[in-house]
Each structure stands twice: as structure tokens, then as C-alpha cells.
Design a protein around this nucleic acid. Sequence first.
DNA 1: CGGTGCGTTGCAACCCCGTGCAACGTTCCG
DNA 2: CGGAACGTTGCACGGGGTTGCAACGCACCG
Lengths: 339, 339
Amino acid sequence: MSGTRTARSFVSAQQVAELAGVSRSAVSRTFTDGASVSETTRQKVMKAADSLGYHVNHLARSLINEDSGIVCIIGAEINTPYQARMLDALTRRLQAISRVGMVINTAGDSSSVELALRQTLNYRAGATIVLSGAPPANLIKTCVASGQKVILINRDDHLDGPKNITLDNTAAAREAFLMLQRAGCERLAVVSSLAGTPSLVARTKGFQAAAAEAGLKVTVTATGPTSYASGFEAGRVLLSGSDRPQAAFCVTDLLACGFMDAARFEFGLSVPQEICVIGFDDIEQAGWASYNLTTFKQPIDQIADHIMRLLAEPGDSASDDGTACFQAVPVWRRSVRPR
Amino acid sequence: MSGTRTARSFVSAQQVAELAGVSRSAVSRTFTDGASVSETTRQKVMKAADSLGYHVNHLARSLINEDSGIVCIIGAEINTPYQARMLDALTRRLQAISRVGMVINTAGDSSSVELALRQTLNYRAGATIVLSGAPPANLIKTCVASGQKVILINRDDHLDGPKNITLDNTAAAREAFLMLQRAGCERLAVVSSLAGTPSLVARTKGFQAAAAEAGLKVTVTATGPTSYASGFEAGRVLLSGSDRPQAAFCVTDLLACGFMDAARFEFGLSVPQEICVIGFDDIEQAGWASYNLTTFKQPIDQIADHIMRLLAEPGDSASDDGTACFQAVPVWRRSVRPR
DNA sequence: CGGTGCGTTGCAACCCCGTGCAACGTTCCG
DNA sequence: CGGAACGTTGCACGGGGTTGCAACGCACCG
């Protein structure tokens, strides 16, 4: 409204102050919660700010309080259903507490996790959430030393600075074994990938251990990345032999979907009559009629809530050792025989 | 390595300078590309910086050049396969050109799009990409006036400031009709949602128009959000009648998957023998063996590349009118009868 | 009427960094 | 050996915002 403004740059508090006929401090205080400004000047300032299109520069503001309000979220494979859902849950909540998420996609390259962590420092992020990837320990230490909150999800290396969030993978895997055992399955398989992340390994090991205790042997496959295609491939390999497994525990729903499709379309097997399948994560597709996959639900909302609680805490409260462990709950559908 | 540092705050260039025994400018120049520093001081500075854990404050840096290097990405429904893939493509590329993406989840609430756009200004983002939602025109104007690049995807309101990226939905919809016509289908349906976004509407209208020209009538359904469940529900309704459609054009793959499952599992129909289905987007699940969905592929990589090109351009080049239109290409799988 | 207390306001310093400018040291050449 | 040319370095300022401090105006009270 203020005539032609061809400057093509951001409006500063100075300009607003001049237009409103007050000092720059007054403008600042108008936009600072709890500062002392009279109602009349506040009005003047707001009017001037509106007409110029002024917005507080959070960057300059954070020069002082050393926290930009930015929360870094580091992940590879953002387009995976599970991570996408986590991202959705996190960004939605951040928006609600008027903070903001910076998403850094490390694209699987391990060295770029380091780069990502550097960005976190460059932008004075108040917190960093690592969804996947193995960040170098020394950089994490720098983050913590700088007063950042570092939150690691599903990593097993328990450093003391960062907060860890884990899932009780072992318990879930044992439960999975019991479910298959009760269904009367004896020849068992685990379908995993070559990713080798701590949680995937824990699920595999947990299942193996439970089976071993029961005196049953387990065939373990690991192919490619953690994807539908890998599950399909695993199915092709596992099911071609003469005495094929009667049940498969797939460490991820994506793998499970691929495995199921291989079983049905490559070998004409019916699920769960001829082969039982259990997945992990409870991604949306697991509930689709074509799959109806019995699986374990990660409590994403609980985890996200917990993270928000961590962010709200005062910075120096190392109340506990910083580790929170959540339970994955079984979701019964139709890919395992009942009883 | 530098003894105990209990300060718990970020390291400044000043501290590095003192430790290295040089001036603060020297430190600054060491971390600025193309600045003149001798090799010896650079070494000294780097060593000091390393031992203190120093990282340049991008925020302070951006006070000067008025661009924080942050690119805002605004979207609702991040966990949708299509948007997740777009997000992945974008963040990956941003990382490669050492910029960074700030993801703002507007969570469907229309007023929060405004909030999101405000954040964009607060953080002096160099560019804003709007994946979904209808941003208020006046705020967009402020963004553009502030020198930001605003990129709107799949919106049809063509303001002059922002760059628009669209898909030729009409052409694709016509092509979809032809594919079904050639397959010998006469009773046709369109499955859409209540979201009412421009692209969904365009697909529906385009299909209807093409059918009308050929003298065929089309039943149009629109239920709920753009999801699997809505597609399923649509199927349940459409297929229960006596003369059910022989083919359905679902304006989204998610809808298509739901529709297919309803057809198969609720009514025992086989695809494509008894009913043909075409989707849109080519999400990953469309390629899964359970669906084998014939669909239209959105050229996400091309679009992402194009956006990067827009970001690389000098700010004031309004070379063209700012609209780029991409073609969706048909992907033949097994959900439509050949010939 | 003077003093006190309170709310508001402006000044100036500071947050961290980049950069023009001038001074400095060095090398090289005439 | 003197001077020019050049690369390096430090100083000081600016960028936008916050904040302690002091000054100011005002109402209230004794």
C-alpha cells in the first residue's frame, strides 16, 4: 500500500520505526512477547509494519539467544513410508509450537551425514533429530557441547550426551516368533536387508534367539536395500527350494509386501494357508486389502510426542540417562493363521 | 581437545582468532571462498577452529547477503507417497548445492498456510516452494517483493510474481480416456476426492470432456480425502449398481489402489478382464505385483531439476512468464486390457 | 508543591560475521 | 639501492535485532 517499493529486499525494523515515528527499540519491543510497550505505540508500529510488509528477522534475533528455533531432522530415504510418516508427525508438531524443521537428506551417503551435522551447527539449530545414518561421534560431541539437543532414533551406540530413543526390537521379535509358533509353523525364515542398521539387526537376532531356545532353526536372508524389491527377491530365493519355509518374519513391512507378492504371484502360494508372514512398522500399505499384513506397529505418535517433550525441557536437565524405550505392539490382520 | 569447555555455547570467530593469534578478519576470510589468506595463517586458523569445534554462523552471514540459503518447502500431507517422493527429490538436490530445505507442514489447515508463509519471511528464505494448499495472494506478493523466489506447484491461479509449475492434466486425462476406449470400455467412471485441488479437477474435467466428444457418459464420484480408503469407498458405491462401469479413471494412484481392492475383494471382479483401472502419479505401490497399475507418471525428477534451475537463476530474471508445464507420461502395466 | 513510584521510551552497546580501505611487508625490477 | 607492484592483514563499519540503563512523563500521595 505504501506506493511503489522497487527495492526488492526485506523490510527492516528501522524503516518501520521511521514510518511510525518511533525508535527502533519500540518496534523491537512490539514484536517481543512480554516487553513493555504502550498500547498506542504498539498500534502505530503494527500499522506501519503491516503497510510495509515487515517481518521480524529471526536470524538476527537468534544472534543473541543462540537458538534459531530451527530443529534439524536428518534422514536418508525420506520417501520410505515409515520415515515419511515420522517426518509428518514431527513437522506437524513443530509447526504447532511455532518452531520449524530443517530437513537434511543424507541420501544414504555416509559421509554426508557429517555434512548434515555441520549444517546443524551452521544454522545454530536448537536441536537435531537423527532418523537414520551413523553420525560421527566427535561431531555429536560438538553439537552437545554447543548446547544443542541431539536426539538419536534407533541407534544402539549409547553416548552420554545425546538422548536416545529406541524400540524394544528384541521383545517384538520374540513375540513374532511366538505368534508363528502358535500358528504351527516350524520351518522359519527371516527376511532382512543389507542395510545392517541396529534395529534391523536386533530384530533378526531376537527372532533367531527365540527360535533357538525353542529348538527351531531359522534361515536368514539379507538382500539389497530395505525395499519391496528386496523382499520380492528374497521370496524368489527362499521359496524355490524343495522344503520351503512355512513362515517368514520380515524385519520391515516393505520387505514383507515384496515377499508376499513373490509367494503369491511367483509360486502361487496362498497366505496364510500355505505360508505365514509377519512384518514390522505397520506402514499404511500393511492395512490395504491386498496385503492385510499382520505386523508390529511403531508408536510413531508417542515417539513424536516424547521428542516434543524433550525439546520443551530446559537445556541442561540431564534428568535421566536420556534413553527412552518404546514397545512395538502387534497388529493382527490376516497374514498369519489364527491360534 | 582444548581442555574442559563448560561454556555450553557456540564458538565464535573471536575465540578462534585469539587462539590462533590472528585477527577476526583472518578467521572470516579463511572460511570465505575466494578471499585472500596466506597458506600459513589459513593453517593456523583451521587448527584453532578444529580444536574449538568452530562452525561459521550462517545466520549472521546471511544478515549481510540477505539470503539465508534456506529454501522453504510448504506442504500438507507429507506422508503421501507422491509428496514424500517430491520432498525426497528436492531435499536431496538442495543438499547437493549446499542449500537446505525447511519443511513446513500445514497439516491441511488453510489458515496455517499463511503462518507457514510468514515463517518463510521470518527466516529470510531465499525461495519458497508450495507443494499444496492455497496461499493468500497478498502474502505471496510480500514474499516476491522481498526478493524471494516463490514456486507454486500445480496451482492454476497464475499471479505474475511467482513461478508456476504445472502438469498438462487435461492432455493426460484425454489420453486416459483413449486408452480405455481402445480397450473397448463404454461405461466409464471417474474416481476423485473432495479435496478439490486444481489438478484433480482438471483431470476430472479433461476426462469428461474427452468422453463427451466421443458421445459417452461418465459417472463421477468424489468421496473424502485423496486416499486409499476413499478409493475403496468409491468402489463400493460404484460397483454395487446393476450396470456397473467397465472402467474407472482414478485421479490418483492412491484412489486407484483402493478402488481396485474394492473391486476384487468386495465384488470378486478381476482386473483388467472385468474392469479396467487407470491411476495417476505412478507412486511406488503402483508397480507392486498386487496392483500392476497402469498409470501416468509425474516427471518428479524433471520437475525437481527445473526447480533447481530456477533457484540458480539470478533473482531478477523474469525471463519468461514463469510458467513451466510438464507432461505426464503413461506407464503401461496390467490394469487395462491391451489393444 | 515536592517527592515517589511506575510505566514507557530512546540511546548505545552487543550479538557474529563480511568487507572496503589503508597500512604493511615482500619481492622484483630497473 | 630505490621504487613500484602485489599479496596479506587489521581496523572499523554495517547488517537487523535485543536489552540494560537512564531519562522522561505522569499520576498519585503526603
